[in-house]
């Protein structure tokens, strides 16, 4: 499967897909999309990169171990729920605030943090599975 064209194209394709996955993740609250879908797209991106160029470039590009990313995602998802403690409301009550970034008003909320956590868990776990299987391919 490692044709020249595929190998040349793969990094660009992967970058595009990862970018798209972040877009899908962020718009998920109002349009179709969200953490699960975003995570799946990103995981597919890394799987494709792995098939095209081998596993070690993917691991280098990710820098962290995929399962660490997954663990971090689960952590911030849980923390986003625990934040509601400070508002003296039950666990996982959504909290909303507006912030101005570069002149654009952005809604910031704990459900958004939670969704990012979901995204990271799905991305990390599925990438880990795909890479582990691709690694077996090589030996």
């Amino acid at each position: 499967m490692r044709t020249l064209i595929f190998r040349t194209m793969a990094p660009y394709l992967t970058s595009l897909m990862v970018l798209f996955s972040v877009f899908v993740l962020l718009r998920g609250h109002n349009e179709p999309g969200g953490g699960f879908i975003g995570g799946l797209i990103a995981a597919s991106a890394f799987a494709i990169y792995g098939i095209a160029c081998g596993v070690s470039p993917v691991r280098r590009a990710l820098y962290f171990h995929p399962m660490s990313i997954s663990g971090f995602g689960l952590f911030i998802a849980a923390v986003s729920g625990a934040l509601s403690m400070f508002g003296a409301v039950p666990f996982m009550t959504g909290l909303w605030t507006e912030a101005s970034i570069l002149g654009v008003t952005v809604d910031l909320s704990t459900p958004l943090v939670f969704d990012i956590g979901v995204y990271l868990v799905v991305l990390g776990s599925l990438t880990s599975i795909a890479l582990a299987l691709e690694e077996r391919e090589e030996d």
């Binding site: 699960f36 799946l40 799905v122 776990s125 599925l126 599975i129 582990a132 299987l133």
Partner: peptide
């Protein structure tokens, strides 16, 4: 169903391995 799809995929991957 959305979560079920993702979870059944994880299970499928596990069973496959």
């Amino acid at each position: 169903v959305l979560t079920a799809i993702v979870i059944s995929f994880s299970l499928f991957a596990f069973l496959l391995v």
